[in-house]
Protein backbone atom coordinates (compact mmCIF):
# COMPACT_ATOMS: atom_id res chain seq x y z
CA UNK A 1 0.00 0.00 0.00
CA UNK A 2 1.22 3.49 -0.74
CA UNK A 3 0.90 6.48 1.56
CA UNK A 4 -2.37 7.64 0.01
CA UNK A 5 -3.89 4.20 0.33
CA UNK A 6 -2.97 4.09 4.01
CA UNK A 7 -4.74 7.42 4.49
CA UNK A 8 -7.76 6.25 2.53
CA UNK A 9 -7.91 3.07 4.62
CA UNK A 10 -7.75 4.94 7.88
CA UNK A 11 -10.36 7.49 6.89
CA UNK A 12 -12.85 5.01 5.46
CA UNK A 13 -12.33 2.41 8.19
CA UNK A 14 -13.24 4.93 10.87
CA UNK A 15 -16.24 6.23 8.98
CA UNK A 16 -17.70 2.84 8.06
CA UNK A 17 -17.09 1.41 11.54
CA UNK A 18 -19.24 4.21 12.95
CA UNK A 19 -21.97 3.82 10.33
CA UNK A 20 -22.16 0.02 10.11
CA UNK A 21 -25.33 -1.93 9.37
CA UNK A 22 -27.74 0.56 10.89
CA UNK A 23 -26.87 3.59 8.77
CA UNK A 24 -29.62 4.92 6.51
CA UNK A 25 -29.43 6.86 3.28
CA UNK A 26 -31.78 9.54 4.62
CA UNK A 27 -29.68 10.16 7.70
CA UNK A 28 -26.14 9.27 6.72
CA UNK A 29 -25.63 9.75 2.99
CA UNK A 30 -24.50 13.35 3.50
CA UNK A 31 -21.47 12.02 5.41
CA UNK A 32 -20.47 10.03 2.33
CA UNK A 33 -21.04 13.04 0.07
CA UNK A 34 -19.06 15.29 2.38
CA UNK A 35 -15.95 13.19 1.91
CA UNK A 36 -16.51 13.13 -1.83
CA UNK A 37 -16.24 9.36 -1.65
CA UNK A 38 -18.54 8.80 -4.62
CA UNK A 39 -16.03 10.60 -6.85
CA UNK A 40 -13.32 8.10 -5.92
CA UNK A 41 -12.92 6.87 -9.49
CA UNK A 42 -13.42 10.17 -11.31
CA UNK A 43 -10.37 11.94 -12.77
CA UNK A 44 -8.83 14.67 -10.64
CA UNK A 45 -9.46 17.10 -13.50
CA UNK A 46 -13.20 16.53 -12.98
CA UNK A 47 -12.96 17.11 -9.25
CA UNK A 48 -12.57 13.42 -8.37
CA UNK A 49 -9.94 11.47 -6.40
CA UNK A 50 -8.45 9.97 -9.57
CA UNK A 51 -8.46 6.65 -7.75
CA UNK A 52 -7.58 3.22 -9.15
CA UNK A 53 -9.52 -0.02 -8.81
CA UNK A 54 -7.04 -1.00 -6.12
CA UNK A 55 -8.13 2.10 -4.20
CA UNK A 56 -11.72 1.06 -4.79
CA UNK A 57 -10.88 -2.35 -3.37
CA UNK A 58 -9.94 -0.71 -0.08
CA UNK A 59 -13.26 1.11 0.16
CA UNK A 60 -15.44 -1.75 -1.09
CA UNK A 61 -13.72 -4.30 1.14
CA UNK A 62 -14.24 -2.12 4.22
CA UNK A 63 -17.91 -1.69 3.35
CA UNK A 64 -18.18 -5.48 3.56
CA UNK A 65 -16.03 -5.65 6.68
CA UNK A 66 -18.31 -3.26 8.57
CA UNK A 67 -21.55 -4.57 6.99
CA UNK A 68 -22.20 -1.03 5.84
CA UNK A 69 -25.83 -0.55 4.86
CA UNK A 70 -25.11 2.32 2.47
CA UNK A 71 -24.67 1.71 -1.28
CA UNK A 72 -21.20 3.24 -1.45
CA UNK A 73 -19.55 0.84 -3.92
CA UNK A 74 -22.60 1.11 -6.15
CA UNK A 75 -22.52 4.91 -6.12
CA UNK A 76 -18.78 4.90 -6.84
CA UNK A 77 -19.19 2.59 -9.82
CA UNK A 78 -22.27 4.42 -11.11
CA UNK A 79 -20.53 7.80 -10.93
CA UNK A 80 -17.59 6.43 -12.87
CA UNK A 81 -19.69 4.87 -15.62
CA UNK A 82 -22.09 7.81 -15.92
CA UNK A 83 -19.37 10.45 -15.84
CA UNK A 84 -20.03 11.58 -19.41
CA UNK A 85 -23.81 11.68 -19.11
CA UNK A 86 -24.28 14.96 -17.28
CA UNK A 87 -26.49 13.47 -14.56
CA UNK A 88 -26.61 14.89 -11.04
CA UNK A 89 -27.28 13.20 -7.71
CA UNK A 90 -26.73 9.71 -6.33
CA UNK A 91 -26.43 6.94 -8.85
CA UNK A 92 -26.61 3.22 -8.25
CA UNK A 93 -26.23 0.02 -10.23
CA UNK A 94 -28.44 -2.92 -11.13
CA UNK A 95 -27.70 -6.49 -12.11
CA UNK A 96 -30.00 -7.05 -15.10
CA UNK A 97 -32.08 -5.24 -17.71
CA UNK A 98 -34.76 -6.52 -20.08
CA UNK A 99 -36.00 -4.26 -22.82
CA UNK A 100 -35.16 -2.19 -25.85
CA UNK A 101 -32.82 0.75 -26.27
CA UNK A 102 -33.67 2.83 -29.33
CA UNK A 103 -32.71 6.38 -30.24
CA UNK A 104 -31.48 7.15 -26.75
CA UNK A 105 -34.70 5.85 -25.14
CA UNK A 106 -35.13 2.72 -23.05
CA UNK A 107 -38.34 0.81 -22.54
CA UNK A 108 -38.26 -2.22 -20.28
CA UNK A 109 -37.38 -3.37 -16.79
CA UNK A 110 -34.30 -3.32 -14.63
CA UNK A 111 -33.74 -5.85 -11.82
CA UNK A 112 -31.65 -5.81 -8.69
CA UNK A 113 -31.24 -2.03 -8.55
CA UNK A 114 -29.24 -1.56 -5.35
CA UNK A 115 -30.87 0.62 -2.69
CA UNK A 116 -32.37 2.65 -5.50
CA UNK A 117 -35.11 4.52 -3.63
CA UNK A 118 -34.28 8.16 -4.20
CA UNK A 119 -31.52 7.43 -6.70
CA UNK A 120 -31.18 9.88 -9.59
CA UNK A 121 -29.96 7.30 -12.08
CA UNK A 122 -29.24 3.62 -12.45
CA UNK A 123 -26.52 1.92 -14.44
CA UNK A 124 -27.63 -1.50 -15.62
CA UNK A 125 -26.07 -4.14 -17.85
CA UNK A 126 -27.28 -3.79 -21.44
CA UNK A 127 -28.72 -6.93 -22.95
CA UNK A 128 -26.01 -7.09 -25.62
CA UNK A 129 -22.89 -6.13 -23.65
CA UNK A 130 -21.82 -2.85 -22.11
CA UNK A 131 -24.17 -0.88 -19.89
CA UNK A 132 -26.97 1.63 -20.03
CA UNK A 133 -27.28 4.66 -17.83
CA UNK A 134 -30.93 5.43 -17.04
CA UNK A 135 -32.41 8.48 -15.43
CA UNK A 136 -35.06 7.40 -12.91
CA UNK A 137 -37.25 10.39 -13.68
CA UNK A 138 -40.75 9.23 -14.47
CA UNK A 139 -39.89 5.56 -13.96
CA UNK A 140 -41.73 3.22 -11.60
CA UNK A 141 -39.95 1.47 -8.72
CA UNK A 142 -41.17 -1.78 -7.23
CA UNK A 143 -39.31 -2.32 -3.96
CA UNK A 144 -37.64 -5.65 -3.25
CA UNK A 145 -35.02 -6.60 -0.66
CA UNK A 146 -32.06 -8.94 -0.43
CA UNK A 147 -31.55 -11.20 2.61
CA UNK A 148 -30.00 -8.34 4.60
CA UNK A 149 -33.00 -6.11 4.02
CA UNK A 150 -31.21 -3.91 1.50
CA UNK A 151 -33.12 -2.66 -1.53
CA UNK A 152 -32.72 -4.70 -4.70
CA UNK A 153 -35.52 -3.03 -6.59
CA UNK A 154 -37.25 -3.65 -9.89
CA UNK A 155 -37.84 -0.64 -12.15
CA UNK A 156 -40.14 -0.18 -15.11
CA UNK A 157 -39.01 2.35 -17.71
CA UNK A 158 -41.16 3.66 -20.52
CA UNK A 159 -39.14 5.59 -23.05
CA UNK A 160 -36.71 6.85 -20.42
CA UNK A 161 -33.69 8.81 -21.61
CA UNK A 162 -30.77 6.41 -21.70
CA UNK A 163 -27.05 6.49 -22.49
CA UNK A 164 -25.07 3.52 -23.68
CA UNK A 165 -21.57 3.05 -22.21
CA UNK A 166 -19.05 0.39 -23.11
CA UNK A 167 -17.89 -0.58 -19.61
CA UNK A 168 -19.62 -3.66 -18.21
CA UNK A 169 -21.41 -2.83 -14.97
CA UNK A 170 -22.15 -6.49 -14.32
CA UNK A 171 -18.41 -7.18 -14.06
CA UNK A 172 -17.86 -4.17 -11.85
CA UNK A 173 -20.78 -5.12 -9.64
CA UNK A 174 -19.22 -8.55 -9.32
CA UNK A 175 -15.95 -6.89 -8.31
CA UNK A 176 -17.78 -4.92 -5.61
CA UNK A 177 -19.26 -8.14 -4.24
CA UNK A 178 -15.91 -9.96 -4.31
CA UNK A 179 -14.37 -7.12 -2.32
CA UNK A 180 -17.27 -7.10 0.15
CA UNK A 181 -17.12 -10.86 0.53
CA UNK A 182 -13.38 -10.54 1.27
CA UNK A 183 -14.09 -7.95 3.95
CA UNK A 184 -17.14 -9.72 5.35
CA UNK A 185 -15.27 -13.01 5.71
CA UNK A 186 -12.39 -11.32 7.52
CA UNK A 187 -14.86 -9.68 9.90
CA UNK A 188 -16.77 -12.91 10.57
CA UNK A 189 -13.48 -14.73 11.11
CA UNK A 190 -12.33 -12.10 13.58
CA UNK A 191 -15.60 -12.36 15.50
CA UNK A 192 -15.40 -16.14 15.54
CA UNK A 193 -11.84 -16.14 16.84
CA UNK A 194 -12.69 -13.67 19.61
CA UNK A 195 -15.79 -15.58 20.54
CA UNK A 196 -13.88 -18.88 20.69
CA UNK A 197 -11.32 -17.27 22.98
CA UNK A 198 -13.96 -15.77 25.30
CA UNK A 199 -16.61 -18.44 25.54
CA UNK A 200 -15.87 -21.25 28.00
CA UNK A 201 -17.32 -24.76 27.98
CA UNK A 202 -16.02 -27.84 29.77
CA UNK A 203 -13.96 -25.47 31.90
CA UNK A 204 -11.88 -23.95 29.11
CA UNK A 205 -12.20 -21.56 26.18
CA UNK A 206 -13.64 -23.10 23.01
CA UNK A 207 -10.41 -22.03 21.32
CA UNK A 208 -8.57 -24.79 23.18
CA UNK A 209 -10.58 -27.52 21.47
CA UNK A 210 -8.78 -28.86 18.46
CA UNK A 211 -11.96 -29.36 16.45
CA UNK A 212 -12.77 -25.67 16.84
CA UNK A 213 -9.20 -24.68 15.94
CA UNK A 214 -9.19 -26.80 12.79
CA UNK A 215 -12.51 -25.46 11.61
CA UNK A 216 -11.46 -21.84 12.08
CA UNK A 217 -8.12 -22.54 10.41
CA UNK A 218 -10.03 -23.79 7.37
CA UNK A 219 -12.14 -20.65 7.50
CA UNK A 220 -8.97 -18.52 7.59
CA UNK A 221 -7.79 -20.16 4.37
CA UNK A 222 -11.06 -19.35 2.65
CA UNK A 223 -10.95 -15.75 3.84
CA UNK A 224 -7.39 -15.46 2.58
CA UNK A 225 -8.40 -16.90 -0.79
CA UNK A 226 -11.26 -14.42 -1.18
CA UNK A 227 -8.96 -11.53 -0.30
CA UNK A 228 -6.28 -12.62 -2.75
CA UNK A 229 -8.90 -13.10 -5.45
CA UNK A 230 -10.18 -9.59 -4.81
CA UNK A 231 -6.69 -8.13 -5.14
CA UNK A 232 -6.00 -10.13 -8.29
CA UNK A 233 -9.22 -8.83 -9.82
CA UNK A 234 -8.51 -5.21 -8.82
CA UNK A 235 -5.08 -5.44 -10.43
CA UNK A 236 -6.63 -6.84 -13.60
CA UNK A 237 -9.17 -4.00 -13.72
CA UNK A 238 -6.33 -1.53 -13.38
CA UNK A 239 -4.56 -3.24 -16.29
CA UNK A 240 -7.69 -2.66 -18.38
CA UNK A 241 -9.25 -6.04 -19.03
CA UNK A 242 -10.64 -8.36 -16.38
CA UNK A 243 -13.01 -10.67 -18.28
CA UNK A 244 -11.14 -13.76 -17.14
CA UNK A 245 -10.29 -12.57 -13.65
CA UNK A 246 -13.78 -11.45 -12.74
CA UNK A 247 -15.11 -14.93 -13.45
CA UNK A 248 -12.30 -16.61 -11.53
CA UNK A 249 -12.49 -14.22 -8.59
CA UNK A 250 -16.25 -14.10 -8.13
CA UNK A 251 -16.49 -17.86 -8.32
CA UNK A 252 -13.70 -18.31 -5.77
CA UNK A 253 -15.17 -15.71 -3.43
CA UNK A 254 -18.64 -17.27 -3.77
CA UNK A 255 -17.29 -20.62 -2.69
CA UNK A 256 -15.55 -19.07 0.28
CA UNK A 257 -18.91 -17.71 1.43
CA UNK A 258 -20.22 -21.25 1.89
CA UNK A 259 -17.39 -22.38 4.14
CA UNK A 260 -17.01 -19.06 5.95
CA UNK A 261 -20.61 -18.51 6.93
CA UNK A 262 -21.10 -22.06 8.14
CA UNK A 263 -17.87 -22.02 10.18
CA UNK A 264 -18.71 -18.66 11.72
CA UNK A 265 -22.17 -19.77 12.79
CA UNK A 266 -20.94 -23.13 14.03
CA UNK A 267 -18.30 -21.47 16.21
CA UNK A 268 -20.85 -19.08 17.71
CA UNK A 269 -23.48 -21.61 18.73
CA UNK A 270 -27.02 -20.42 19.35
CA UNK A 271 -26.13 -16.83 20.22
CA UNK A 272 -24.92 -16.26 16.66
CA UNK A 273 -28.37 -17.29 15.44
CA UNK A 274 -30.10 -14.42 17.20
CA UNK A 275 -31.30 -11.08 15.92
CA UNK A 276 -29.59 -9.39 18.82
CA UNK A 277 -26.09 -10.63 18.05
CA UNK A 278 -24.09 -8.86 15.36
CA UNK A 279 -23.05 -11.80 13.24
CA UNK A 280 -26.08 -11.84 10.94
CA UNK A 281 -25.52 -8.40 9.41
CA UNK A 282 -22.33 -9.90 8.01
CA UNK A 283 -23.50 -13.39 7.13
CA UNK A 284 -26.80 -12.31 5.58
CA UNK A 285 -24.89 -9.90 3.37
CA UNK A 286 -22.47 -12.68 2.46
CA UNK A 287 -25.28 -15.05 1.46
CA UNK A 288 -26.79 -12.30 -0.69
CA UNK A 289 -23.48 -11.34 -2.24
CA UNK A 290 -22.89 -14.91 -3.36
CA UNK A 291 -25.88 -14.71 -5.69
CA UNK A 292 -25.61 -11.10 -6.75
CA UNK A 293 -23.80 -10.25 -9.99
CA UNK A 294 -23.37 -13.87 -10.89
CA UNK A 295 -23.64 -16.98 -8.77
CA UNK A 296 -21.28 -19.95 -8.88
CA UNK A 297 -22.86 -21.61 -11.87
CA UNK A 298 -22.94 -18.43 -13.94
CA UNK A 299 -19.25 -17.67 -13.55
CA UNK A 300 -18.19 -21.31 -13.68
CA UNK A 301 -19.94 -21.58 -17.05
CA UNK A 302 -18.30 -18.40 -18.29
CA UNK A 303 -14.82 -19.36 -17.14
CA UNK A 304 -15.12 -23.01 -18.13
CA UNK A 305 -16.40 -21.90 -21.53
CA UNK A 306 -13.45 -19.57 -22.06
CA UNK A 307 -10.90 -22.22 -21.21
CA UNK A 308 -12.62 -24.92 -23.26
CA UNK A 309 -12.90 -22.66 -26.30
CA UNK A 310 -9.23 -21.70 -26.11
CA UNK A 311 -8.25 -25.36 -25.86
CA UNK A 312 -5.92 -27.35 -23.62
CA UNK A 313 -2.74 -26.10 -25.27
CA UNK A 314 -3.69 -22.50 -24.40
CA UNK A 315 -4.86 -23.13 -20.84
CA UNK A 316 -1.64 -22.51 -18.89
CA UNK A 317 -0.28 -20.03 -21.45
CA UNK A 318 -3.42 -17.89 -21.19
CA UNK A 319 -3.45 -18.07 -17.41
CA UNK A 320 0.13 -16.86 -17.10
CA UNK A 321 -0.26 -14.27 -19.87
CA UNK A 322 -2.76 -12.50 -17.61
CA UNK A 323 0.07 -11.31 -15.39
CA UNK A 324 3.05 -11.17 -17.78
Amino acid sequence: MNEQQHMLTEMVDGLFAGLGPSATIEKNWPQIEELGLTTLLLPEADGGFGGSWQDALIVFRLSGYHALSLPVPEAVIAARLASGCGLQGRGTIASRSDGRLEGGRFTGTVHGAVQSAGAAYIVAPATDGGSIVLSTEGAQRKPANNLAGEGRDVWAFDGASAFAVTEDVFELGAFARVAQIAGGLDAALGMSVSYANDRKQFGRPLAKFQAVQQSLATFAGEAAAANCAAMGLAQALDRGNADYEVAAAKLRANRAVGVGTSSAHQAHGAIGFTKEYDLHPITRRLWSARSEFGGDSHWATVLGGKVITAGAHRFWADLTALTD
Binding site: G232, A247, A248, R255, A300, T301, G304, L319
Partner: peptide
Protein backbone atom coordinates in the same frame (compact mmCIF):
# COMPACT_ATOMS: atom_id res chain seq x y z
CA UNK B 1 -14.81 -28.22 -27.46
CA UNK B 2 -18.37 -29.05 -26.39
CA UNK B 3 -18.56 -30.98 -23.14
CA UNK B 4 -21.63 -31.28 -20.92
CA UNK B 5 -22.64 -28.36 -18.72
CA UNK B 6 -21.51 -30.17 -15.60
CA UNK B 7 -18.02 -30.70 -16.99
CA UNK B 8 -17.87 -27.12 -18.19
CA UNK B 9 -18.69 -25.82 -14.71
CA UNK B 10 -16.27 -28.26 -13.10
CA UNK B 11 -13.51 -26.95 -15.36
CA UNK B 12 -14.53 -23.39 -14.48
CA UNK B 13 -14.37 -24.21 -10.79
CA UNK B 14 -10.96 -25.88 -11.03
CA UNK B 15 -9.56 -23.01 -13.09
CA UNK B 16 -10.88 -20.48 -10.58
CA UNK B 17 -9.07 -22.31 -7.77
CA UNK B 18 -5.91 -22.54 -9.84
CA UNK B 19 -6.00 -18.83 -10.67
CA UNK B 20 -6.48 -17.90 -7.00
CA UNK B 21 -3.89 -20.29 -5.61
CA UNK B 22 -1.36 -19.07 -8.14
CA UNK B 23 -1.74 -15.51 -6.88
CA UNK B 24 -1.57 -16.65 -3.27
Amino acid sequence: PSPSDSIRTLIGQLVSETWTLRLM
